[in-house]
């Protein structure tokens, strides 16, 4: 990308952040009345809605039923108006199918699946606006929705991307940085135990720089965790205050 300075001499990125800074994360829980759990997450200009239904009886083909654990069913879709160029299919294309599988694997690792044998949990994720880091925002939104639904999990799942631009590791990259052709590392982890549930790498990165980029992503995940945790606690206190004052 000629002419586009991804990291200025003063150490600022294209949207004015420092290399280690996340985009602004705003979240709300319980946005739908009908779903068991739901959440809305804005990560910079990436906006994602997630809804969780269940655990409930298996719908569709009963062959998918697992006698010892719950079936996690995901659906990732991007609104037709979410990208710069209008999308033709909101879901079902190769990219969405891959994303769906990744989300499913991520949450199978985090949800305590053995507690609900023979049932199913549905996770629906819709990207309303896409500005890079769709997977990360989707995971963060789905985590909040699962917590809102009261479904037991080992820990939060936090996801964050990182890249290596002009000899500097940078965290939480946006669409411009993503499409500049530099390496992209996507990481989802359980922040308390630092266990990685998903690690994905796009394009090439020199081996020597890998640990620096991974450290950056790990730190990003922990920052995301502290933001999500604050949001959950706030939601909890306000709801409990309502409930307590009505108990007579």
């Amino acid at each position: 990308m000629a002419g586009l300075e991804l990291l200025s001499d003063q150490g600022f990125r294209i949207d004015g952040r420092r290399p280690h800074e996340l985009r602004r994360i705003q979240c709300r829980m319980g946005v739908f009345g009908q779903a068991e759990g739901s959440a809305y997450v804005e990560q910079g200009n990436t906006k994602v809605l997630a809804a969780v239904y269940g655990p409930h009886e298996i719908r569709g083909s009963r062959g998918k039923m697992q006698p010892d654990k719950v079936l996690i069913n995901c659906q990732y879709s991007m609104a037709t108006f979410s990208t710069g160029e209008r999308k033709r299919r909101p879901r079902g294309d190769r990219k969405s199918q891959e994303m769906t599988k990744h989300l499913q694997q991520t949450f199978e690792a985090a949800v305590l699946t053995h507690l609900y044998p023979r049932s199913q949990i549905d996770i629906f994720v819709e990207v309303l606006q896409s500005d890079g880091g769709n997977y990360c925002a989707s995971v963060n939104a789905a985590t909040l929705a699962i917590i809102d639904a009261g479904i037991p999990m080992k820990d939060y799942v936090c996801a964050c991307s990182a890249s290596y631009i002009e000899d500097n590791p940078v965290v939480d990259i946006n669409y411009l940085e993503e499409s500049s052709g530099s390496a992209e590392l996507i990481m989802a982890m359980l922040p308390k135990s630092e266990q990685i549930v998903l690690l994905q790498m796009n394009s090439r990165l020199h081996e020597d720089n890998l640990s620096k980029v991974m450290d950056m992503a790990t730190q990003g995940c922990k920052d995301v965790h502290s933001i999500l945790d604050t949001a959950v606690r706030e939601h909890l206190t306000s709801s409990i205050a309502l409930q307590d004052s009505s108990v007579t």
């Binding site: 917590i147 999990m153 080992k154 939060y156 359980l190 922040p191 308390k192 959950v232 909890l236």
Partner: peptide, 8 residues
């Protein structure tokens, strides 16, 4: 008095 916890 309420002891609030989150997953993990």
């Amino acid at each position: 008095q309420a002891h609030l916890v989150t997953p993990g």
